Amino acid sequence: MDARWLTAPPAEVAAAMATQRRSARPAWVPTKRQMLVHLTWSLLLWYCFIVFMTIGVRVDGYGDNDTGPDDWRDLAIALVVLMVWVLVALLLQRWAKRPPAPRARLAEWRQTLTALANGFEPQLRIASPLPVLIGQPAGRASVYPRFTAAGDQRVEFGNLVWRTGMHGRPVTRGYLAVTLPSPLPHLYLDSLANGRTPGDLPTSVDRSQRLKLEGDFDRHFAAYAPSGYGTDALYALAPDVMAALIDDAAGFDVEIIDDRVVFSTPTAADYSDAATWSRIETVLSGVALRLVKRAAAYRDDRVSGQHLRPARVIGPGGRRLANGYRSRGPWPMLRLVGWMLALFFLYVVPGLFAFAGFMSIVDDK
């Protein structure tokens, strides 16, 4: 991999980027500044709710609907604080619209130029197209950054980002996906050397699908294949493939699904680090190339008339691991309803109570 742009002088990087006129950061990716602005406005709304409701309850409950001098004084102080807060929020919002800090912009330029120098294009995509276990539900996942390359061996890599549960913590995984010439049975290799708890699968995969492989491969990966497709999995995991996985991809979880193999890490990949690009090159030239050759020669004998089909297919029993997609069904709709209710209670409820409290103060009938 050509990694010269990761250490090139900043002036040279800026000059090269000016000729490219492209950026790897999409507008939908929030910055820390934008998150700060969002937090400021949200806290301001809750401040209005608490202050106005407190004064309003005091007027209605203890003042017999009569607004006294102390109430007007407290209201005036609250309004002054409110105006100052709004001014600060507007200044923060203006500050957030400024271009990224030079250091962050330079880091983005370096990784973009490195990708271009190695034949990869920065591609923007909001929703993840990967139907893999690591990013379920894919409809709520996003990819940033994302780099792609076309050709005989279509490749894409980047960082996959999503949230666990409805309001769970954000999860980011680095990934590298390679398109195979024909599909293989669903196969998942859970790395035992990447810092995750052994057997900590991303979704509820039936543990009875675990394969027992010869040699010391089981000390590095826990392999899972659909029931009845163990022999086919052994075909894909030929001795040279297993050796390459141990030597070059021991820190990756590996999933073969349909006509794609996906290598992923439990943490985000740092594309400003030359070591990351070196690992990508190692995987592409090693184990990925071996899997491409195995896929090109594979046929599922359970499906009749494969030689008459324009494209090879996998039998229904081998296309997916059992329980690999528990996140489907009614859960996505329930999560959406839950999220809408959360927004209602976070914004609409305090806004209505703040207005009601303010009207209780000024209405002293």
Rank of each mutant, 00 (worst) to 15 (best):
D190P: 02
S204N: 11
G324S: 14
A238S: 15
R279D: 09
R328H: 10
F217V: 08
I256T: 02
A233Y: 01
K293E: 13
D206R: 02
E281S: 13
P202C: 04
R335W: 12
A225F: 00
A243Q: 15
D259P: 00
Y298G: 05
P316E: 10
K212A: 14
V205S: 02
T267Y: 03
T265I: 05
L321V: 03
L284I: 07
Y224C: 03
T267D: 03
D253F: 00
P316C: 08
T282P: 01
Y235V: 11
D248G: 11
L234I: 08
D190R: 01
P202T: 02
A297H: 14
D247H: 08
R196I: 10
P239C: 11
D240V: 14
L189V: 09
V303Y: 10
A238G: 09
F252A: 04
L201I: 04
L291Y: 00
D232V: 02
R290G: 00
G251T: 04
T282V: 10
R210A: 13
M242D: 05
D232I: 03
D248R: 13
A225I: 02
G324W: 02
R302G: 02
L334T: 14
P239N: 09
L237S: 04
L289Y: 03
G199V: 04
L192V: 10
W277Y: 12
Q306N: 15
F263Y: 06
T265R: 06
R207I: 06
G195V: 10
G228V: 03
